[in-house]
Amino acid sequence: MKRQTLAMILVSIVLLLLLIPISIAVMILLDISDISKLFPYSVSSLIITGIGIVLSALIVGFLAKIAALKIYKEEKSAKVAFLAVFFIAVLISAYSINIPRIGPSPQKVIYYTLYENEVYVNPYFGKISLPFEEKDWTKEHGLRPSGYLKREEGIVNGSSGFVFQNITGVYIGIFVYPNSQESPKCENALQDLEERLKNRGWQEVEVPPEALEKRNFIGRLINAKMLQQGSKAVYLECSDVMAYGRLIILYGEKKEVIELASILS
């Protein structure tokens, strides 16, 4: 019995040592999957992290159960081994897994763009996220590009708050493209949109410095354009973010578009 217990302890230690690589593999698979679209972006990373922790712990727990069945030859001991290893794995994962550490992905590019703007920090409530609401609009306005890996679009309306009250309705589209160093798809998409707008009578205007001098920029600017028609403006920006090409499209009143462009990471 002592030998069996010692063998089970050694197997459990080995499995728990494998927990981190298993967790990373699970998190990467979840991160690049479309499961994130089921949840609001403001909480999707937390939900995906929780799912990843449970799945990783289940995998390690089931492996421990299989090992226990081989060692003890009885179901009761196998169940005990499963539960013990599962709960230990959950605790380890909860303290060791963090979405931003796993690596870049299209999902993270979008998340950081919308929700990691540390410009506005309230001493009581912490970071204040953009008042973003999902809404498909680029296709309707003839501004949807092609060839992207992932997209998120919607509207930013801060009229009911006290931080972003100057932005009452700016449409935003974020499109993530393959590695900007290896593929010019992001910049090509920007140029295509610029040409489309000019063909519809939009006039190119100088991009205001405040739109380019971002307060919390997380990437490298490749190209930016602004076009105007009446009081409306469209801001197009292609950047290298986390080794991906990120195309941002903003549409709305010119002053509000400039304000939002200066805020986005």
Rank of each mutant, 00 (worst) to 15 (best):
S262F: 02
T113S: 15
A68M: 04
F162T: 08
Y120D: 14
N216R: 06
F86E: 05
I47L: 12
R200Y: 10
P178Q: 09
Q4S: 08
T168H: 09
F217D: 10
Q203Y: 10
F217T: 04
L29C: 08
A261C: 02
V14M: 07
G103R: 07
Y111H: 14
L15P: 14
L149A: 08
G201A: 05
S33E: 05
C186P: 10
I9E: 02
K150G: 03
L221E: 01
I20Y: 12
E118F: 15
K70Q: 11
I28D: 05
L227W: 00
R200H: 09
Y171K: 12
V234P: 00
L264F: 01
S45M: 14
A224E: 00
L247A: 04
D240F: 02
F217I: 03
G103Q: 09
I248P: 02
E204Q: 10
F125S: 11
K2I: 13
A89N: 06
F162M: 09
V11P: 12
A94D: 15
E206W: 01
A64Y: 04
A81T: 09
I218K: 13
P178R: 08
K73F: 06
P104I: 03
S265W: 03
R3H: 13
I102V: 13
P106F: 05
T49W: 13
T5V: 12
E134R: 11
V156Y: 01
E152W: 06
G61M: 08
F39N: 14
Q229V: 00
Q165A: 12
Q165V: 15
K108N: 10
K76M: 08
Y244A: 00
L63Q: 04
I222Q: 08
L247I: 01
L143D: 07
G126Q: 03
E256I: 02
W137L: 03
N122F: 04
Q203V: 06
K139W: 05
I248L: 13
E195R: 08
Y115D: 03
G103V: 05
C238E: 01
L143K: 09
S93Y: 13
G147W: 11
S77L: 03
K127N: 10
C238Y: 01
K2H: 08
A25N: 06
